[in-house]
C-alpha cells in the first residue's frame, strides 16, 4: 500500500515538474523544476530496487549536471523571449520531430513485444538481486574483477585534470595574492595605531 502511494506521489511529481520545466517563463526556474524532476525520478528508481541508479541521479544529475545548467543559464546572456518568438515558424519542424519520436516509441513497443534480437547467450554475470543489494554487487565487480580498468579509468580522469590545468593555468603578474604566512606573522601593533587627536583638529594619517 505504502509503495503504491509513494509511486503515485513520485510519478505525479515527475510529470508535473517536467511540464513546468518547459512552461516556466524564467529559465532559472526551469532548471530548478528539472532538479525537482530528477529527485522524484530518483525516488521512483528506489522503489524498483535500483538504489545505485537512484544515487547516481542525485549525485551526478542533480549535483553536477543541473548545477552546470544553472551556471550556463545564469552566465549566458540569452534573450529567451526572443528565442520563443520563432515558435510558429519552427512549429512544423517540431511537430515532425515529435511524430518521428512517436513512431519510434510505437515500433520499439511492438518490437519489445515480439521478443529480443537474436544476441549471443550472455554468460550470466549478474547476481541474484534478492541475495545481494545492487550497490554491493556493482562495487564487488568494480573493485575485484574489473579492478584493472577501474584504476585505468581513474588515471584517465587524472590526465584530464592535469591537462585542463596545463592548458589554462598561467601565473599572472601584478596580482595581489594572499600570503598566509605574512598575514599570520603580522602583529596588531604593526597594523593599527591609536591616536588621540585634540578637539577641533583632524586626524593625520
Amino acid at each position: 500500500m505504502i509503495q503504491t502511494i509513494a509511486f503515485y506521489l513520485f510519478a505525479i511529481m515527475v510529470v508535473l515538474s517536467a511540464g513546468l520545466v518547459i512552461t516556466a517563463r524564467n529559465p532559472v526556474h526551469s532548471v530548478l523544476w528539472l532538479i525537482l524532476a530528477f529527485f522524484n525520478a530518483a525516488g521512483l528508481m528506489l522503489l524498483v530496487g535500483a538504489e545505485f541508479i537512484a544515487m547516481l541521479l542525485v549525485i551526478v544529475y542533480v549535483g553536477a549536471v543541473a548545477v552546470l545548467f544553472l551556471f550556463v543559464v545564469m552566465m549566458l546572456d540569452i534573450d529567451f523571449s526572443e528565442l520563443r518568438g520563432g515558435f510558429v515558424r519552427y512549429l512544423p519542424f517540431g511537430v515532425a520531430v515529435a511524430l518521428v519520436l512517436l513512431c519510434e516509441i510505437v515500433i520499439a513497443g511492438g518490437a519489445w513485444e515480439a521478443g529480443p534480437v537474436e544476441l549471443a547467450g550472455r554468460t550470466a554475470l549478474a547476481p541474484d538481486p534478492a541475495a545481494i543489494p545492487n550497490i554491493q554487487a556493482l562495487g564487488t565487480l568494480l573493485y575485484t574483477r574489473y579492478l584493472f580498468v577501474f584504476e585505468g579509468a581513474g588515471l584517465v580522469l587524472l590526465v584530464a585534470m592535469i591537462g585542463a590545468i596545463v592548458l589554462t593555468h598561467r601565473a599572472r603578474g601584478g596580482v595581489r595574492q594572499q600570503n598566509v604566512r605574512r598575514q599570520n606573522i603580522r602583529r596588531p601593533q604593526d597594523a593599527t595605531r591609536n591616536t588621540n587627536p585634540p578637539v577641533g583638529q583632524g586626524v593625520e594619517l
Binding site: 585505468g152 588515471l155 584517465v156 590526465v159 584530464a160 592535469i162 591537462g163 596545463v166 592548458l167
Partner: peptide, 8 residues
Amino acid sequence: LQSLAAYV
C-alpha cells in the same frame, strides 16, 4: 588514456 594525454 593514451589519446587524452596526446591531445594535451
